[in-house]
Design a protein around this nucleic acid. Structure first.
Lengths: 148, 148
DNA sequence: ATATAAGTTAAACTCGAGTTTAAGTCAAGA
DNA sequence: TCTTGACTTAAACTCGAGTTTAACTTATAT
């Protein structure tokens, strides 16, 4: 099955301008052209773009992604480097998830803070609470925020 | 305790240029100046910058963060809006963590893929495997990548 | 056949988030 | 006092990741 750039944009939820931009950046090595010069995308390109999306999410720049894509076109001699890259992505994403979880804890503490403030009509109520009055679950987050 | 911009930069692990930039953007409403015009940071500013960092991590732009910071200077009349903002941050960060977990699953599948390819000496071994030969844990990730 | 929709390019533009530069001021120790 | 290092500003610059524009071509439906 072949798709035009418009169909492709729709299935991936991206603007056509982004697909052209990715093409120019060398992120679509398998994409072909029709006799009239129009881009023709295949299922292979869909998978390719999903990997691009995944790598982008993982924190890689488009230049780094192009390097990976180029490796896939160079065949089995790059297996080791590709494996190494994914192992590194794995540990970085794990670290990012951990960081996001700390961020979430801080946000939850602030939700409690403002819920308490709302009930009292003033932020000075939660702000002046001693550690013992703050629910267990929020103490760590508060400590991380305030000065040690 | 008061700190110069250099000390502050060190404790927060940010360049001084970033602190000046944040100041110019209105992200440091409590920061004072010495008689000679030098920025003097207090513990309050440290906490403020940690919140900035948290909100940035959560996906807010600096302009949105400034809006929040301005609310904190406006007192109790903005409690409701501040609570609403943190509740929204909470659900967005939860969504981001979920997305990152899917990304991680995809990456783990690719790690398995390239480990298998490495053992075989060629990517065509994992690439040509039927669903039954792919370990359970990776099947979903593979499905999400390949075309439905 | 022809209008319209969808596609093409190169080049310029945008936007957020800083960083760098240049010219000058402040603070601390010898 | 003088030097040195840290600080000040405004303005220009950078960088990544697209988006927009203008002029043009291809494909489709009537």
């Amino acid at each position: 099955m072949l798709y035009t750039i418009g169909e492709m944009a729709k299935t991936l939820g991206l603007p056509t301008s982004t697909l052209r931009f990715y093409d120019k950046k060398g992120l679509l090595p398998f994409m072909e052209r029709s006799s009239g010069g129009m881009r023709m995308f295949s299922d292979k390109d869909i998978e390719c773009l999903r990997i691009v999306e995944c790598l982008k999410q993982s924190g890689l720049s488009l230049d780094d992604i192009r390097h990976f894509i180029r490796m896939t076109t160079e065949g089995d001699s790059t297996i080791d480097e590709r494996l190494a890259m994914f192992l590194k992505r794995k540990s970085e994403v794990e670290a990012q998830i951990e960081a996001m979880q700390k961020t979430l804890e801080t946000i939850k503490y602030k939700c409690w803070f403002y819920e308490t403030a709302k009930a009292a009509g003033t932020t000075s109520v939660p702000a002046s609470m001693g550690v013992e009055q703050i629910p267990q679950e929020f103490r760590k987050a508060k400590e991380r925020l305030t000065c040690k």
